[in-house]
Amino acid sequence: MTASDFKAELTHVNLLDIRTPREWDDFNLGGFHVSLDTLLGRIDEISKEKNWVIICYNGTQSLIALRLLNAKGFTNIDHLEGGIEAYLSL
């Protein structure tokens, strides 16, 4: 999902923020926070029924998380291309 699309859809999606706790504390947009390194251990906390957009700082880790969740059977997910960095630059 592009940053422009993300901005337009922000109030209609469920955010899955996979940044570190420190990054989350510094700035967050809300949503469900689980750092990438604990994602697989907490996967049962993420509903497969909801539409998720995975966010991170620059889009690299969210793409990794997207691929991991796809492999675990998640289909209603996307990630923010360019991450929060791209969103804030709009």
Score class of each variant (00 low, 15 high):
residue 69 L to H: 15
residue 7 K to M: 02
residue 35 S to V: 08
residue 68 L to V: 07
residue 28 N to W: 12
residue 83 G to Y: 00
residue 18 I to R: 02
residue 18 I to E: 07
residue 79 H to S: 04
residue 20 T to P: 11
residue 87 Y to W: 14
residue 87 Y to D: 03
residue 50 K to F: 08
residue 72 K to Q: 15
residue 12 H to N: 15
residue 31 G to V: 08
residue 44 D to Q: 13
residue 58 N to A: 06
residue 29 L to C: 00
residue 89 S to Y: 06
residue 40 L to N: 09
residue 60 T to K: 09
residue 42 R to W: 01
residue 29 L to R: 04
residue 60 T to C: 07
residue 85 E to P: 09
residue 59 G to I: 00
residue 61 Q to C: 08
residue 57 Y to W: 02
residue 85 E to K: 07
residue 26 D to M: 11
residue 55 I to E: 00
residue 8 A to W: 02
residue 88 L to C: 06
residue 70 N to W: 06
residue 25 D to H: 12
residue 77 I to A: 02
residue 34 V to D: 06
residue 77 I to F: 10
residue 68 L to S: 12
residue 17 D to W: 13
residue 41 G to K: 08
residue 70 N to D: 09
residue 27 F to P: 07
residue 18 I to N: 03
residue 88 L to M: 02
residue 84 I to H: 10
residue 2 T to C: 04
residue 71 A to T: 11
residue 45 E to P: 11
residue 82 G to E: 00
residue 19 R to G: 09
residue 82 G to A: 03
residue 16 L to Q: 01
residue 66 L to W: 15
residue 37 D to Y: 07
residue 76 N to F: 08
residue 1 M to Q: 09
residue 22 R to N: 09
residue 57 Y to K: 05
residue 52 W to H: 03
residue 46 I to R: 09
residue 27 F to E: 13
residue 34 V to K: 01
residue 49 E to Q: 13
residue 16 L to M: 01
residue 40 L to W: 06
